[in-house]
Design a protein around this nucleic acid. Structure first.
Lengths: 142, 142
DNA sequence: TAATATCACTTGCATTTCACAAGTAATATA
DNA sequence: TATATTACTTGTGAAATGCAAGTGATATTA
């Protein structure tokens, strides 16, 4: 029996595409940890926010790769490891995450006030820094 | 037996708060329709994106109200209706939505190119317009 | 080289969420 | 009074999720 498709989503509408890729409890957190904390390996993601189940993490990483937000390449120094790295499409989410963090900081109690202040006081510079670190992390491999 | 709490989430971390409120398939779409299309009633939300189930819509509206993102007040001209309106906290999500739309427009096929162009070419002016329309919608009641 | 450890998963099972259809109470309109 | 509309709730089956316990490949240690 063919898999029944549930919920017909109109894809042409702005935002629908984003929500399809990012509208769940974990994807944005995974991306945040790659972007701001430099997390790269499965194990690091598992430990970053204790609470995500291993099957869910595997599923989300697979989807992020499928959406072109993340790449998975074997670690040259340890054949067991995969390094998950943000693609350009992935790092382009930095403004989205930044606005979300600023919104939450404005309206909720959130931690890491230093980071928030940095984001708020010079958003452009903060974003440039994020992108630069991303470029440096990727470029050393020709 | 008390309900077991699953998944211990650290709330102090930036972004966790946002994801808790917005990290699902529907909340951001509901907010978008309030913000950009002026949708206000249960029925309008149901029709906006056919596919959301009535129980889920009721649940999401309830949560958005609980989070202080939306208010529900009876329509003065029809006692059966409730008008769901964005709070200040809700309208403050405009930059987040804008960045998400721009990101998707950059990397996916999305509709409403006119809106996207408007957002991209003068983001600040676009955001000011959104906020102004929101203020006008709410202020006529003293 | 054998034993053990680490890593990135997969599998199985119970619980929860979700989509869909059908109903309901309150209010409005004819 | 009869019918319609609005904002839901309830029931049901299917899918997604959380958790514990594996598994196979590679690395490290004795």
């Amino acid at each position: 029996m063919p898999k029944k498709r549930r919920g017909k989503r109109r894809s042409g509408c702005p935002l629908n595409a984003s929500v399809e890729m990012l509208g769940d409890r974990w994807s944005l957190l995974i991306i945040r940890d790659m972007m701001l904390r430099g997390a790269k390996s499965y194990k690091e993601f598992l430990e970053c926010y204790e609470g995500i189940a291993t099957n869910i993490l595997a599923d989300r990483l697979r989807k992020l790769v499928a959406y072109g937000i993340v790449t998975a390449e074997p670690d040259p120094s340890d054949g067991r490891k995969l390094n998950y790295l943000l693609t350009e499409k992935g790092i382009d989410l930095a403004p989205v995450l930044t606005e979300m963090v600023l919104w939450a900081a404005e309206h909720e109690d959130t931690g890491n006030q230093a980071l928030v202040r940095q984001m708020r006081e010079n958003k452009e510079q903060f974003l440039a820094g994020v992108r630069k670190r991303w470029a440096n992390r990727n470029s050393p491999r020709p």
